[in-house]
Each structure stands twice: as structure tokens, then as C-alpha cells.
Amino acid sequence: MTRILMINLPFDGHVNPTLPLAKALIARGNNVDYICSKQFKEKIEKTGANFIPYNSFPDIPTEKEKKKLSFQALYDTSISLKENNYDLLIYEMFFYPGIQVAKQLGIPSVRQFSQSAWSEETWKSASKVFKFSSFLIDTQVMGKKRIKSMQLPFDSMDDAIIHSKPNMNIVYIPESFQKCRESFNDTFYFVVPEQETKIMNEAVNIPYEEMKKPIIYISFGSILSDKSFYKKCLKIFGNKNLSVILNSGKVKPESLGDIPNNIYVYSFVPQVDVLNHTDVFITHCGMNSVNEAIKAGVPMICMPFINDQIENANQITNLKIGKRIHSFPSRTKEIEDTVQELLNNPIYKSNIEKIKNELHENSKWNEILENVEKLCFKNE
């Protein structure tokens, strides 16, 4: 039986896309150990994988501790398992020392991208905010001492991700969504596997059958905790000839005051199910949300804040499957007008349906699984 080690950093957007691969490999008879922080134990074990927690890491880390401690903790834990004689290491691109860990363990590696892949061409045209985020990781998370102690042959995150490549890279986005697709060779596989749908709390009942069409869905995950924007949404859409499902996340619905009858506010929703009832999605453009919107064929209004969200929003606009607006619009009319444009102009719905169909027609999932296993057999 092949022994595969999967490793990852403790962030939902980087862990969640990798879980279908773990589950599929186990279903095919492979043994998978997965290193991550304890907050992901239940999710990881649900795939059938053996969960291994980081050594010397807080059980309930703060966001600052995640950023400061997780890279070193993951590296140290991975190296400590050298005697386990794994056949293959699978790492997510954000933990860019992964390829070097594999070399120290003496095994081949596979890289997973939870966002669009990086190349010299994509980096040249990336936003200043995106580049600055990478720079902060280099200076605040890694630093010269850690780079040296990990024996890394590169000095920066962008240099490592672009130039230090394994022979197999899995990118969890539609192929046509990849910016500068021509800059990636045949070692890059583009796929959007089926994710586990979260079970909704039984106390939450979304009465789709009572809602007046069209339905607008608004969600920014856990990124937005300022209730002023949500109150602005109530003002924009309240008592209009449409319905709104608002996922308020960290903001308690009762803190928003009087809620109009055509607006349904929840602190959590099963997003895949909601998108299947939605006509327009207002989103921060995290890649998981973008993939789910594409799979449901729902055009997006983009309000990005940080990191890859900005690049995703730009690509959504370029492909005309949605439109970007100001992330903190001073004029409510901008949101209202953009909703009407996406509802009334059929080009957005048509374009996103084409990409949705591409996911079904060009899936390389079985080929990916077979090639991952071939790397294991070669190592044996």
C-alpha cells in the first residue's frame, strides 16, 4: 500500500480545496497522513485520512499565531516523520517550502494550488496589493533566519512558487479562468472537484418557495465584521421587487435592527445550496466562493479586499462573468445599478454557463489521481 503525506497551513481557503484529493486517494486504497493544526482535525478525518497535529503549536491559535508560528511548526513536524518512509509528499502552494521538505525526506512531491497558479507572466501583471501580501510573508512570517534554517534555495515567496516547481501541479480552478494560461506547461492540471456540502443547522430554514425572484445572495465569509455595510444592504434592497439572502457571518442578525420582509439574514448558510437558487452573487471573491458560483452558473458582483481576491475579481471582469465595483462603495447606487446590469444583460449569464459546462466536459480528475499514484509507484 502506498503511503502519502499531505501537509498544509491552518487556513480554510487553503485546506478545504485539498480535501477531495485526500478522500479520493483513500477511496482508491492509498494510505494518507495529513499534517495540519488541530482545528482541522474533524474535517481531515472525515476524508478517511490519519490526522497528524503540528508539533509545538497552540490548540486554539490566534490569527497572529497562525501567521507567525505555522510555517515553522509544519516544517518541523514534516521533517520529524522522515523514518515513516512515505512514497509521496503533497503540499499546498502557500507552504512553499514543501518541495524542499520532500527533497529532505527523499521522496517526490505534488503541489496543489488553492488559487490561480503563478508564473513570471502572471506575476508581472499582478496588482500591487497582491505583491505586497507576498512581501509581508517573506518579511514577517519567514525571514532570512528561517529561510536559512529550512535550507531553502530561494529568497522570496514569489521566486519559490514561480521557479521551484515539482513535476506535477494541481490547480483548483477552471482552466479558462487561469490568467496567462499559455505560460503553464503540461505539468499543470486544472480541475474543480466536488466539495463536501456543509450541513446546515436544523434551526435555519431558508424558504426559497416564498421568495420573490430575482434572488440576490450577499456573502463575504468571515472577512467582514463591520455591520455598517450590511445595514447599507438593507437600505439598498429593502422593500424592492426582489429577494435577498444575506450571510452576515460574524455579525449577529439581530444587531442589524429592523429587517425588511424581502431580506433574509442568517449568520450561516449552506452556500452551495443557496447559490443554486440565486440570480446574482455579491462576493469578496475568495477562490472557493468563485468556484461555487461558476458551478452554479451565477454571475458575480466583485468586492475584493486582499490577496488573491483582487486578482480573481479582475479575471471575473475580464471574462465577463461578473463585474467589479468599489469594495467600500460610498454611493449605494453603484451596487444597485450593477445588480440591474447583471440581471438584464444576458452576456454575463451566458459566459458563466460556458465555463460551468467546461467543468463537466473537460474534467481531468481520474487522470490526476492516476498520475499521483504513478509518482508513488516510481518512488517504490
Rank of each mutant, 00 (worst) to 15 (best):
P108M: 07
N314Y: 07
K252V: 15
D33R: 09
N239S: 14
E292D: 13
L242N: 01
N169R: 04
N84Y: 13
E120M: 01
N366W: 03
D159V: 15
E336R: 02
P166V: 01
L74R: 04
S134C: 06
P193V: 09
I282W: 06
Y230C: 07
F268S: 13
R28G: 13
P10K: 05
R28F: 08
N185Y: 09
S350L: 08
Q340C: 12
Q140P: 03
F229A: 05
S78G: 10
L359W: 04
L19Q: 09
I321N: 08
S125N: 05
I310T: 02
V141F: 14
L74C: 11
N8F: 01
C233N: 08
Y54I: 00
I215L: 14
T77R: 01
F71K: 02
I263D: 03
E341P: 10
K66N: 15
V244E: 04
I44V: 13
P108K: 00
F237G: 01
N167Q: 13
P10R: 01
G48R: 06
G249E: 08
E380R: 13
E120G: 03
Y86T: 03
F220M: 09
V171Y: 02
V290K: 10
D159C: 09
M93Y: 15
T338Q: 12
P299M: 06
E367R: 06
W118F: 15
N379F: 14
Q151A: 14
A296M: 08
G257N: 11
F190V: 07
T122K: 10
L275I: 00
L19F: 04
M150N: 07
V32T: 09
T332K: 15
V141A: 14
V191E: 15
S267M: 11
K124I: 10
S116I: 14
N16M: 11
P61F: 08
C285A: 15
L224W: 00
L81W: 04
C376T: 15
N205T: 11
I245H: 03
S219K: 11
W123T: 08
Q309Y: 07
N379E: 13
A24Y: 11
I199T: 12
P260L: 11
T338K: 07
A126C: 04
M300K: 09
T317V: 12
M200L: 15
C302Q: 03
K46I: 00
F220G: 06
W365L: 09
C180M: 13
T283C: 14
L319Y: 11
N366V: 14
I79G: 02
S109F: 02
N312E: 09
S134N: 10
T187A: 02
E334L: 02
P166K: 03
K356D: 04
N262Q: 01
V101Y: 05
F71I: 09
Y217Q: 06
L136G: 08
E353H: 12
L152E: 00
R331Y: 05
T47P: 07
E209C: 10
I306S: 03
N16Y: 10
T77Y: 00
F40P: 01
Q112D: 10
R331Q: 12
M168R: 00
N261A: 14
